[in-house]
Amino acid sequence: MRLLARTPLAPLLLAPLLLSGAAFAQTAAPAPTPSPASAAPKGGPAGTGVSGATNPVVSSLAVTVGRAVGGGQLVTCPSKLSVSRQAVCIYSKQAAAQARTQIRTSLASRAAGEWKLSGQSGSLLVKNAAGQIGAYVLIAPLSAQESLLVVDAVNVAAAPRATAAPAGVVKGQPYLLGKDLVGVVNVVSLGAGKFRLNVPGETALTVTAGQKTAQRAGGNVDLPLAPVSDGKNLIFPLSGLRALGCTVTDAPKGVTITCGPDSVGVLPIVF
């Protein structure tokens, strides 16, 4: 793998998913190949081209990704890109479709599923040595034969938003607070542990804390798990969103909930 010293890419403009490929291609010409002595940035492990401050999982994955695409050039991640400080960005002289195939093949069983695509851009979740989701790869085309690859860690150790599990929750199952659903589901407290959930275009669903049976005009609906409440907030099981006609898909950090034409990214609570 030939990862070169990081090159600033401050002038780049972001596109809907990652950044504007045209702007990147016009403003970020590859830097000249440095001598072997300068191939590894100062402070990073010799021969890896990855900063020593980077998460070890990210470092290892970045090396694997770089090798999969036949080498690449480490670049400074654009400041407007929503990634962590430990993210690694790689410029590759390969078309996005070809790079995706080679990366997926190289990762083999480490990949958690397949690429999630939006046009030619996409994301791929990657498992760590323990078999848990530990990192992800993003890819965006810069031109017909150039791509930007982003490797970053998935923050699975986020601090819980509740200090204790409310009575009635099933440990190990993902839940959402009512406020997590803002933008896709309208949640209204009716008092006495009852809440009305409404998705535009769907019939409202009334749920009661501690009960798996919900009410909808015309009959009852059985939820996979009972919603609960801490006395004020609704704590709704992620699996129950199907009763509202919503879909849930994995995202690099958390999940994406889609209800009708609207979607929102959230990080569920697991008690």
Rank of each mutant, 00 (worst) to 15 (best):
G122Q: 05
A144R: 15
A15S: 15
T256Y: 02
A209R: 02
L81F: 09
A153E: 07
K232S: 12
A162G: 06
V228D: 00
A159Q: 15
Q132G: 06
P78K: 14
A37I: 04
Y175F: 15
V255N: 07
P56V: 01
L74P: 00
G191N: 13
G260L: 14
Q94F: 04
T33A: 09
V57T: 12
K253T: 08
P160Y: 14
G44I: 02
S51K: 03
N198D: 11
P166N: 11
N220Y: 10
G113S: 01
A112E: 03
L124Y: 02
G178H: 12
L107Q: 04
L142M: 15
R242F: 06
A29G: 03
L124V: 00
L125V: 05
P237K: 09
L205P: 04
K179E: 13
P237W: 13
P11Y: 13
V185H: 12
A153D: 02
A214F: 09
P34L: 12
K179I: 08
G172V: 09
G72T: 01
S84Y: 06
A112F: 10
L81Y: 06
P36V: 08
A251W: 09
L238T: 00
R6G: 00
S59E: 10
P30M: 11
V255Q: 09
V221C: 11
A129Y: 11
T27N: 11
E202T: 01
R104C: 00
V137D: 06
D152Y: 10
D222Y: 03
M1Q: 03
V69P: 01
V83F: 11
A129S: 14
A39R: 15
I103H: 06
G49E: 05
L125A: 08
T256F: 04
G193T: 06
R110L: 04
A130T: 07
A62K: 14
G183Q: 09
P252F: 09
Q102P: 00
L74M: 05
L125F: 02
Q132V: 07
L107M: 07
L148R: 12
L18F: 14
G113P: 02
A167K: 14
A23T: 04
S143L: 12
G219S: 06
A217V: 07
R2K: 07
S82D: 12
A140G: 15
G119E: 09
E114M: 05
S92Y: 08
T54G: 03
A23N: 13
G70W: 05
P268K: 06
L241Q: 06
R161N: 08
